[in-house]
């Protein structure tokens, strides 16, 4: 989660770094004047490019109080419609199979994500009874679950 936001910071950092004077040394952390010139000419997104600055979505917890993070220049740009938020869900139908990798293979978590997307794809066309529920129901042992006295779950109340 932190990694996502740090990418945002990184692009913002480039913009800040240009104001610094200690850029003559190649050992320093920021771009050298030559590098800056190349970045400015080839990679920097300018208004005249007609492209919106890409930004990553921010982490938000629906059920927790969110920590206030200071707004970065890119977020301001986004509010003004000058940025495009990269979507993690727009191509969800692409995600039910492992996409090709280069040097880094898929993690266990990634495989779980792919399986879940595949399962959702299968269930999308299901009507009536949920097959997953039917499959698991016979294995339910009441002593494994914590059911507070009065609040009995509806599905628990009428076993098959």
């Amino acid at each position: 989660e932190r990694r996502c936001s740090s990418l945002q910071h990184k692009s913002a950092l480039c913009a800040c770094g240009t104001g610094q004077k200690q850029m003559n040394s190649h050992e320093s952390w920021s771009l050298s004047p030559e590098e800056f010139e190349i970045w400015d000419r080839l990679y920097r997104i300018k208004e005249s490019d007609g492209i919106k600055e890409p930004v990553l979505p921010r982490v938000q917890f629906e059920t927790l109080e969110n920590m206030e993070e200071p707004a970065f220049p890119l977020q301001k740009a986004q509010e003004e419609g000058a940025a495009r938020e990269l979507s993690l869900s727009e191509w969800s139908i692409w995600q039910n199979q492992p996409l090709p990798t280069s040097l880094v293979g898929h993690s266990d978590l990634c495989h779980l994500f792919i399986s879940a997307m595949e399962m959702m794809e299968l269930m999308r066309h299901q009507q009536g009874e949920c097959s997953y529920g039917q499959e698991l129901q016979p294995h339910l042992r009441m002593e494994d679950v914590n059911i507070p006295g009065k609040k009995r779950n509806l599905s628990m109340a009428n076993p098959p």
């Binding site: 989660e1 932190r2 990694r3 996502c4 890409p54 495009r84 990269l86 979507s87 993690l88 869900s89 727009e90 191509w91 969800s92 692409w94 995600q95 492992p98 996409l99 898929h106 993690s107 266990d108 978590l109 990634c110 994500f113 792919i114």
Partner: peptide, 19 residues
């Protein structure tokens, strides 16, 4: 283009965080 990056992004970032 951004579209191609967006398509590979979920699986790229999935599992980069703490597991």
């Amino acid at each position: 283009d951004t579209e191609q990056l967006e398509k590979v992004l979920p699986q790229l970032v999935c599992g980069c965080g703490p597991e």
